[in-house]
Amino acid sequence: MTHEEQSLQTKKALAASLKKLLAHKSFSRITVTEIIEDCGLNRKTFYYHFEDIYGLLRWMLEQDLLSVILSFDLTTDYEQALTYAIDYIEQNKQLLYCIFHNFGHDEMKHLFYRDFAQLVDSIICASEQKLGLYLDEDFHRFLECYYTGALSGILMAVFEKLYVTDRQQLIDNVSLIFHASLPTLIEQKGTPRE
């Protein structure tokens, strides 16, 4: 096993212990000692991989969302990736509330933003290829930021129950926005591929 594989396995073991502990107590009451005792590692190993428990929590959430989202073919299955994200929010409310209460609204939105930036970039690239056009780097980045901000914002609104709708309706609405607006923007700002 390579060092990278071993490191990933260690991080996963620490994350699994944290998740297990979160099922029984609040994040603010969990200690590094409890985590390392649960997974049979030592304190030095924990601090080799993470600066603190907050670092472990951030990594755990990023891995949970990002690893599964990236397992989809984002050029064709972005609706499935979005469905997964909504399901993840519903199934991990306790963990997400913990993050929300310990890190705040902005940090949680930032986590969603980072995880969805690659999804949005893939959707834009697929649309460019389909239309035989490409966008200059600045406008491509602008669209990525715009759509990612909107997507992470709506997921935060769903999480905070500021926007309540049927799960499928949410997916349909997001898909409609991408299908209706993105090709038009690319056609207006794009340059033909050579």
Score class of each variant (00 low, 15 high):
D172Y: 08
A180K: 12
I35E: 02
F27G: 04
R58A: 07
L74A: 03
Q118F: 13
M60A: 08
L82S: 03
L66W: 04
I99W: 03
T31V: 09
F139S: 08
K12A: 13
K25S: 12
Q168V: 09
F100T: 02
L18K: 00
E144Y: 01
K189G: 03
T184E: 15
I123F: 01
G153H: 03
L96F: 01
F116P: 00
H3Y: 14
Y47R: 04
H24L: 10
I69R: 01
A15T: 02
K93H: 10
I123L: 04
S28H: 05
I35F: 03
F72R: 01
D166Q: 05
K109L: 12
G104D: 00
T165C: 14
L41T: 12
F112P: 00
S127L: 04
L95A: 02
R114T: 12
G153T: 02
D38P: 06
V32H: 03
L95E: 00
E79K: 09
Y84C: 05
F50G: 05
L66V: 11
P183A: 04
Q129K: 12
D106K: 05
K25W: 06
A85L: 10
G104V: 00
L143P: 02
T10H: 08
L176Y: 15
A117V: 12
A157N: 14
F142I: 14
S17K: 02
R114M: 14
S26C: 10
D52Y: 07
C145W: 10
D172W: 05
G153N: 07
I69Q: 00
T165I: 11
I53Q: 04
Q63Y: 10
L176F: 13
S122A: 15
R29K: 13
L155P: 00
L133W: 05
W59E: 07
L65T: 10
